[in-house]
Design a protein around this nucleic acid. Sequence first.
DNA 1: GCCAACGTTGGC
DNA 2: GCCAACGTTGGC
Length: 159
Amino acid sequence: MAKSPAHWLMKSEPDAFSISDLRRKTTEHWDGVRNYQARNHMRSMQVGDRVLFYHSNAKPSGVAGLAEVSGLAVPDHTAWDPSNVHYDAASTPDNPRWWMVQVRFVAAFPRVFSLDDLRAVPALAGMELFRRSRLSVQAVTAQEFALIEELGKKGGSRK
DNA sequence: GCCAACGTTGGC
DNA sequence: GCCAACGTTGGC
């Protein structure tokens, strides 16, 4: 049993699904993840785990707000739909390959705490984000999470 | 739009 | 099991 709550960073392209979308919907399934490491992270998540909602491919990219895990991983049914962009014929209802958790909106930062903002904080220099930039679901430490929560709520730069 | 990083696929 | 080719991610 992992210590609870754990802390995560989850990426979404805001054009597809943003922190504002999550605020409007309150909860949403985090579907479409097609990377094994990211999937494994989701399968280890517990309800109540805390999440940094990260906007990727954005202007600027960075942490846009906070969420929490509100539902354990379940099979990602979008993998079974041939018309879905994330369709994967290798995933079946009998033997699902891809999974998704449910997340719940917690807070939106007044401004995105950008990559530049993150890089400017020495205590965050060890973040996986800087080494594994392509991994869409990452673990963060409780210390990193607390610092970004504090700084993000104050508002990042306007870049 | 470019391109570096890197995960996946498939031939052998 | 190796590794080249290929596709995707994501910052810029």
